[in-house]
Design a protein around this nucleic acid. Structure first.
Lengths: 348, 348
DNA sequence: TATTAGCACTCTCCCAGCCCAAGTGCTATC
DNA sequence: GATAGCACTTGGGCTGGGAGAGTGCTAATA
């Protein structure tokens, strides 16, 4: 790995210029073009020398002998690190984002709008994920009797998220059994962390097993049916703006695979959780996604954890082509991440 | 509009052969090719004559003078009408569909899996929509107090669908106000059609307005906040298999517009409801979508209403290229539509 | 009379050949 | 150290000439 210190002032400037030119044109950048647009008035020959050095350092590549240079992942990496300091969001973006997210009153909707607005500002794919953390506290449960031994379980958590789950049970419980069970849970466990409720419930069921107890029987049935699965990390995953990718000059095959991958929302969620974690504060730019997901060659992920206080409650990201407006997108992602914290803090 | 009676036996056979050949190859079909594959051993010249007639009748088109013929919308229409009689589902499809849908215990999941399996069997986009009909009966409501004047309303309907809605109210109601209100509704209105609940509630609120009544105040707040919006035709819309379209030899521009349209699920829902209605029994094949949605040139919609008894409770459809395996897709759509009825009938 | 064979014609696709523009590396010079 | 000059490389675009597939028309045929 070449020492970034090797990069002097002039190198840096030329590299930046190459990356930016390539981002906006998509054509390999030649020494002549660069010399013309560069205010410093360096001659093409000089620039060629510098380019040769940069190519040695692994920052540039040539599609073929007589073509211009194309930035490598390493160059993007360097470029992003360079600009990441001077990030201030444009007023236009700010207005758009605020207008879109204003008045959202629940998390679901916030996430959905976020993925939408991200896809708008970035010309990439906007992703927003909400983690229903395992630390959710129970507020209220309700069980509804359905035909064919089925029961609908509704669990409301303190943070205002509603889970519903249709279950098929081994034995038929009638609505009054269900009400009794729901009352028992509501009275004994309101405010408990859901996974604790499950543990305690399990303990009590075990304990009482010997005696015949209709209530405990019901609870056991419901427990086994997964009535309290609300503590599982069920995720709300919103992916939007796939159409933005279609404009890209990808080959068809890869594009199709990419779209397919993005349709499998679980995979997108896994991808994000692989690269974003709570500890890291700010926006993260992942270049070189093809190592994890081959069809994402030439794509980058710009994401941030969405925290409420210390706890990670979601993630948001843009998946877009390496040739994208990084500054723009990074600031937008970071801005929304902050809004998220703000919204959910007043929520709790 | 040419009279189908004009089409004789030979014409029909040749037209069918052209459509099928074109579907499988994607190339304009020439007289020679056809003559070779046709068992009747007609000479190319004869076939050319017939083709000329069919072209006059508006069934065939030529991309350019010396190219083969390509079927028009009219030809597809005719072809589909021809084959629609002999529709029996293939065992392979049947197995795949049954395996995928087996064990689905709630409607949501059924719809999701349906859209998935439709996209699998048809190489097109699978769409499944559930209408939460206005005739839903109330089973249970619950209101949860949240920070900042917000209230979470949870409404469970008899058919086992759960609606939740976060609302911001003008005045703060505490949890005990909310419980009182919920109890009032549960005790008075269980089993009522939700829109009737709303009407009656409104009436009672009006009536009691003169006197000061804390309960009525709460109910009014909640009502105005939209607590009982569960009767609105909120829809579950599942669209899957967009990746299948990318393989198509569309021009980029149109493909992008198409993907964009499919991402706006509301529009997809509108499209379906425009073409499918309760009265019609079976699968409907809509050819010539570009009249409604320009970017859908060369696409067809194969859809069916999903009924439970007489009532239309959803729709399912495949949106795919005109060049698709109609027989296959039509039978699959029809098969799933029947399963839907079966599943939800035992549900009610 | 319906079918077929023959023929001249049309059009697209593909390939080879050619030139041009853009870019490079190297060397000599300022 | 920066620049100018020069010979060299390479992909893209343009052209022209088959080859192949297909057509419409006319004349011959069962």
């Amino acid at each position: 790995m070449p020492n970034p210190g090797q990069i002097g002032h002039r190198e840096r400037e030329i590299l930046t210029a190459i990356v930016e030119t390539y981002i906006s044109t998509g054509e390999p950048v030649g020494s002549r073009t660069l010399s013309r647009q560069n205010k410093d008035g360096l001659s093409p020959a000089t620039i060629r020398n510098v380019m040769a050095d940069l190519a040695d350092g692994g920052f540039l590549e040539q599609p073929h002998t007589s073509a211009g240079r194309v930035p490598t992942s390493q160059a993007y990496r360097y470029y992003v690190d360079q600009i990441s300091g001077r990030a201030t969001i444009s007023p236009a973006d700010q207005t758009l984002i605020s207008d879109t997210l204003q008045g959202t009153v629940d998390v679901q909707e916030f996430l959905e709008r976020t993925s939408h607005v991200l896809s708008l500002v970035s010309s990439g794919v906007g992703v927003a994920i909400g983690n229903v953390g395992p630390k959710n506290a129970l507020e209220h449960v309700y069980f509804s009797h359905q035909a064919n031994n089925r029961v609908l379980a509704v669990v409301v958590t303190k943070s205002g998220v509603v889970h519903d789950r249709m279950m098929r049970l081994d034995h038929d419980l009638d609505q009054s059994d269900l009400n009794t069970a729901a009352n028992y849970i509501n009275e004994n466990f309101r405010g408990w962390i859901i996974s604790n409720v499950k543990a305690e419930l399990r303990r009590r069921i075990e304990q009482e097993r010997s005696e015949y107890d209709r209530l405990m029987k019901s609870l056991e049935e419901l427990y086994k049916g997964g009535a309290l699965a609300a503590d599982e990390p069920a995720k709300n995953i919103f992916v939007e703006g796939v159409a933005n990718l279609v404009g890209n000059d990808q080959d068809r095959e890869r594009l199709r695979d990419l779209v397919k991958t993005l349709e499998e929302k679980e995979r997108v969620a896994d991808l994000l959780s692989a690269y974003l974690d709570t500890r890291q504060e700010a926006v993260r730019v992942v270049i070189g996604l093809e190592e994890a997901v081959p069809e994402m060659r030439n794509f980058v992920l710009i994401g941030a954890p969405a925290r409420v206080g210390e706890e990670m409650r979601g993630s948001l990201a843009v998946i877009g082509p390496t040739r994208m407006d990084y500054q723009h997108t990074i600031t937008a992602v970071s801005y929304i991440a902050q809004l998220f914290d703000k919204l959910l803090n007043e929520n709790t």
